[in-house]
Design a protein around this nucleic acid. Structure first.
Lengths: 142, 142
DNA sequence: CAAGTAGTTGTATGTATATGCAAGTTCTTT
DNA sequence: AAAGAACTTGCATATACATACAACTACTTG
C-alpha cells in the first residue's frame, strides 16, 4: 500500500505522457475541425474504415479500434451517417451485426484531411523536444 | 501537402500512444471513482495542490497544469469545493486572481487514493509490454 | 426431433456529466 | 480611457454508464 519508488517514477513519466497527449490531441482536433469540419474521432473512424477491406467494419471493431465505448460508436456512426460519410449495412450471416460502410464522400474527405493531420502531428512532435525524452522512456532504467 | 514518410511513421507511433493512453486513463478513472469517489481530473488537481507551496494555486496554473480549459477548471474547482476538498481565496495583490486552496480533507483523500493510483499505473504499464516498445520511441529512427 | 427456456452477444437509447468555445464581468496596466 | 488579463457563465456536444431489445447459441424436455 505504500508508494513505491517505481510508482513515483511511473507517475512522473505518465504526467509527461498526459501533457504531450493533451497538447497534440488538442491541436489535431482544432485543425481538423476548423479546416476540414471533422472531429478527431470522426477522422480516425474514417481512417479505420478507409483502410479496412471493403471499407466496412462492425461496430465492435470500430469501438475497440478507436478505444471508445460501444454506445459512443453508435452515435459517432450516426454522425458519419448524417454527414454522408458512411452508412449502415446489415450483416447477412448474423442479423444482430451492423456494418458501417464508408462512402466515396467519406474517403474523399479523409484523403483531403490526412495531410493536415500528419503535418500537425509531425510538427507538434518535433516542437515538443520533450517528446523525444518522454518517448525515450526512462521507465525500465528507473 | 503530400503525406511524408515521417508523417506516416508518426501516425503509427501516435496511434500506439493513443491506445496506451486510453487504456491507462480508463483504468485509473474507474479505480479512483469506484474505490475513492474521485474523478481523474479531481485527483490530479488535488495532487497539484497538495504539492504546491501553501497548498494553493491560481486557476490559470491549475488549468495549464491539468491541460484543461479555464472554464473547465472553474467547474472542477467548484466540485472540489462542494466536496469539501478545497476552497477559493482571493488573491490580495491582484484582485482578479483567485486561489484554490486544498483543505485537510482534500489532502487526506488524496493520500488515501494515491497508492491505488500508483499501483494501477505501474500494473497497467507493466502489463502493456507494448508500452516498453512505444516508449522506446521508434521516432527518430524511422 | 421439435419446441421451449436460459444465457450470451451486438446495438441502440435514456440520462448524466465533463469539457470546450464564446461572451460577459471585474480588475489591472499602460 | 483603452487594452488586456483572470475568472465566470451560457450553451453545445462528445462521451460513459445503465438499461433495453433483438438475435443467436446451447440445453432441456416433451
Amino acid at each position: 500500500m505504500a508508494t513505491t519508488l517505481q510508482g513515483q517514477a511511473d507517475v512522473r513519466l505518465w504526467n509527461r505522457v498526459i501533457a504531450l497527449h493533451a497538447r497534440v490531441e488538442q491541436r489535431l482536433g482544432t485543425v481538423l475541425q476548423r479546416q476540414h469540419g471533422l472531429g478527431l474521432s470522426e477522422y480516425r473512424a474514417l481512417a479505420l474504415l478507409a483502410e479496412a477491406p471493403d471499407g466496412e467494419l462492425r461496430m465492435q471493431d470500430l469501438a475497440t479500434g478507436l478505444g471508445l465505448n460501444q454506445s459512443s460508436v453508435t452515435r459517432l456512426v450516426g454522425r458519419l451517417n448524417d454527414a454522408g460519410f458512411g452508412y449502415r449495412d446489415l450483416c447477412p450471416d448474423d442479423r444482430r451485426g451492423v456494418y458501417t460502410v464508408i462512402t466515396d464522400a467519406g474517403r474523399e474527405r479523409y484523403l483531403q484531411a490526412r495531410p493536415a493531420y500528419e503535418e500537425v502531428l509531425t510538427t507538434t512532435l518535433d516542437e515538443a523536444e520533450e517528446a523525444a525524452e518522454v518517448l525515450a522512456g526512462a521507465r525500465q532504467s528507473a
